[in-house]
Simulated assay, not measured.
Amino acid sequence: MPDTAVSDAEVEAAVRLAETLASSDLSQMHDEYRDALEQVIAAKSGTGTLPATAEKAPASAEVVDLMAMLEKSVQDAKSTCGEPAYPAPTFDAWSWVCGVGQLAVW
């Protein structure tokens, strides 16, 4: 491993972090994930019941087409700049992958 310059402030911060973590009382910590996992394991082994699941948030009914918005924005910008708002050329990715290697404008 190459030698790396470490500042005194970085060393001091690392020492303070290590001291803080070493002085923490881990018995007061609670692992909710572990508890839920143990409940699922018990339920699947037949010795317990599955925990209640949280309700899913309802899906938004409105779907925004970002590409359509972008294309409209570009066309609006071109029309205000005096440039004609032609449809954007499309890239035929299949031809590119198959070795033709050129843009296809339809």
Rank of each mutant, 00 (worst) to 15 (best):
V11A: 12
E12N: 11
E12W: 02
A14N: 06
A14P: 01
V15A: 11
R16S: 14
A18G: 09
A18Y: 12
A18R: 15
E19S: 01
E19K: 02
T20W: 04
T20A: 13
L21N: 11
A22K: 11
S23A: 15
S24C: 06
D25G: 06
D25M: 06
D25R: 11
D25H: 06
D25A: 08
L26W: 06
L26C: 01
L26I: 06
L26N: 03
S27N: 10
Q28R: 14
Q28L: 15
M29Q: 15
M29W: 15
M29N: 13
D31M: 09
D35Q: 14
A36S: 11
A36K: 14
E38T: 03
E38C: 01
E38K: 02
E38R: 04
Q39E: 12
I41V: 14
I41H: 03
A42E: 09
A42T: 03
A43S: 05
K44M: 13
S45M: 08
G46N: 08
G46T: 11
G48I: 11
L50P: 01
L50D: 03
A52P: 15
E55D: 15
A57R: 14
A59L: 09
A61R: 06
A61E: 10
E62R: 12
E62G: 04
V63P: 02
V63N: 08
V63R: 13
V64K: 10
D65Q: 02
D65P: 01
D65I: 01
M67Y: 05
A68Y: 01
M69Q: 07
L70A: 12
L70R: 09
K72V: 01
K72D: 09
K72M: 03
K72H: 03
S73V: 00
V74A: 10
V74N: 04
Q75F: 06
D76K: 08
D76T: 12
K78G: 00
S79H: 00
S79P: 00
G82L: 06
G82H: 05
P84H: 02
A85V: 07
A85R: 08
A85K: 09
Y86I: 07
P87D: 13
A88V: 08
P89E: 00
T90R: 14
F91E: 02
D92H: 07
A93H: 05
